[in-house]
């Protein structure tokens, strides 16, 4: 079973990604068993049909898709993943912050695609709490990169109060 980082530890993960190309062949009735992350278009059509999709279905956003395009109640989504098609594509950092800060999303926010170990501290600060790193990174070893910095200047999701308001 694949292993991901979730809330500062490494766990087994059973959420399966349905990609854009697979979606045409997928029928919702086939997704009854197991846990699936579906593309935005599938998610939105499920919402249109069912209002609230079942709890074993989550959503993944491409780096070109914005939270405002998500239909239905964002807070009900069990797992929301954001794709980093290349690790240097930094749109996901803004999308993560928007989901947490503007849309109040409290569920699992996962970075998928090709995020790298050395982005972990930035990702956490943008609200991500789950990380499916590029294959060649050992998630156990990568955990140390979560603690690269002891403090930060800006307000962010994990510490909304900027340093200048916390200096004595």
């Amino acid at each position: 079973m694949p292993r991901i980082i979730l809330d500062n530890s490494v766990v087994d993960d059973n959420w399966q990604l349905i990609t854009e190309s697979e979606q045409a062949d997928v029928d919702i009735s086939q997704l009854a068993e197991g846990n699936y992350l579906v593309p935005l278009s599938v998610w939105n059509s499920l919402v249109a049909e069912l209002t609230t999709p079942p709890a074993n279905i989550g959503l993944w956003l491409a780096s070109t898709e914005l939270p405002e395009q998500i239909q239905g109640s964002i807070s009900e989504i069990p797992v929301l993943a954001i794709d980093f098609p290349a690790f240097a594509d930094g749109r996901g950092f803004s999308i993560g912050r928007l989901l947490r800060e503007r849309y109040g999303y409290k569920g699992q926010l996962r970075a998928i695609g090709k995020p790298i170990r050395d982005q972990l501290s930035y990702l956490v600060r943008c609200g991500f709490n789950a990380f499916d790193l590029a294959e060649h990174y050992d998630p156990e070893e990568a955990l140390t990169s979560l603690k690269d910095f002891s403090d930060n200047y800006q307000g962010s999701v994990d510490q909304p109060i900027p340093l200048f308001r916390r200096r004595s």
């Binding site: 690790f87 950092f93 930035y122 600060r125 200047y153 800006q154 962010s156 340093l163």
Partner: peptide
């Protein structure tokens, strides 16, 4: 200080 390691704008 604001720009130093701004988590959203490093990429």
């Amino acid at each position: 200080q604001w720009a130093t390691f701004h988590p959203e704008f490093a990429f």
